[in-house]
């Protein structure tokens, strides 16, 4: 008992708070709407919808570790999907079986194009933040506009509709009964968790976020590390773009605009300190699950999407208040 208690005490209070929140949301929804909430379909649909948002939240957390932020993730995600879609349309035609039945080879090229956009976009963000020393907020607001703008110029406004079947499988398919996007998310989140907790890059990132000055005097390569964190964020965003366009079979320059707030919310709720130095993947995953349960519960209870938005915003403010109270006590 005492061993358990001491182990419990060692758990990060942010994580403990999240676990409690998740359980409370789950219990509340089960109590209010047991018939409609406690169905496999509800949880299954979460595994399809949550990953694209989860990837954006992980990306947000990675940049927040050094006290930065990446407000261009949506722009990168959409541009990645659009460029891949344009490539498929160029190779397989705009409609019909040629496009839908595109072979694995071209689809793989499409994936590489999308990830390449994330890499380039992230590299640009990283260069502006780490090398040119532009405030992350302004740098990524600006590049977000540029990425969205390029997407708009390329498409002229309307969505690119129609993707190859195997591309769609990334967002829609199942593998051994599990949603492919969920697998992709778990794989990516696991990789980021490994990178942050177990590599010199990840440890260095947190140290830089704790004190950039001390990091310089400890010989850490601060510019390169910060730059890489934005590259990582960009790649994660483009992965989210792949899933999003796969799931909806379309890509558009203004998809997923409300994801930006939700990604920030999940990052902050997941125990990330936006001023740098603290944040973890398990926290993000827990926060994501809690909020996804809440949002499907609210949908089941026929809350309008707008009210759900309100609850997201209110939740962000609430989690700020809770964090403030916790640090004040501690």
């Amino acid at each position: 008992m005492s061993a358990l208690a001491s182990r419990l005490r060692r758990i990060d209070p942010a994580i403990a708070q999240l676990l409690l929140l998740t359980v409370l949301v789950f219990a509340g929804m089960s109590f209010l709407e047991p018939r409609r909430f406690l169905r496999p379909y509800v949880f299954e649909s979460i595994t399809f919808v949550a990953p694209e948002l989860g990837l954006l939240a992980v990306a947000m957390m990675v940049t927040m570790l050094t006290g930065g932020i990446d407000l261009s993730v949506i722009g990168i995600a959409n541009l990645a999907g659009i460029l891949a879609g344009m490539f498929f349309h160029a190779v397989g035609g705009a409609h019909g079986p040629g496009l839908a039945g595109l072979a694995a080879g071209p689809v793989l090229v499409g994936v590489l194009i999308a990830l390449g956009i994330g890499l380039l976009g992230g590299a640009l963000n990283g260069a502006l933040v780490a090398k040119a020393k532009i405030t992350p907020i302004l740098a990524t607001i600006g590049t977000g506009q540029i990425f969205t703008g390029i997407a708009l110029v390329l498409t002229g406004g309307p969505a690119i509709v129609g993707f190859p079947r195997s591309w769609g499988a990334i967002g829609n398919g199942t593998l051994g009964g599990v949603a492919v996007p969920a697998l992709v998310f778990l794989l990516a989140a696991g990789a980021v968790w490994l990178i942050l907790a177990r590599t010199s890059f990840g440890v260095g990132l947190k140290l830089i976020g704790t004190s950039a000055r001390a990091a310089r005097f400890a010989g850490l390569r601060t510019v390169r590390t910060v730059w890489l964190s934005y590259v990582l964020s960009g790649v994660l965003a483009s992965l989210s773009g792949i899933i999003l366009s796969g799931r909806t079979n379309a890509a558009k320059s203004d998809y997923g605009v409300s994801y930006l707030l939700q990604a920030v919310l999940i990052a902050v709720l997941g125990g990330t300190n936006p001023a740098g130095g603290r944040g973890s993947v398990p926290g993000i995953v827990l926060a994501l699950i809690a909020l996804m349960l809440l949002s499907s519960g609210l949908q089941i209870m026929r809350f309008s999407n707008f009210l759900v938005d309100f609850i997201w915003g209110a939740f962000l403010l609430l989690s700020i208040a809770l964090n403030a109270l916790r640090t004040r006590r501690g």
Partner: peptide, 24 residues
């Protein structure tokens, strides 16, 4: 009062107010 970064606070209040307006 809560010493929070203004960007995150205003992101929250903005979304909450807009959601309440549209939904409520």
């Amino acid at each position: 009062g809560l010493r929070m970064i203004p960007l995150i606070v205003t992101l929250g209040t903005g979304t909450a107010v807009r959601g309440l307006l549209l939904g409520g």
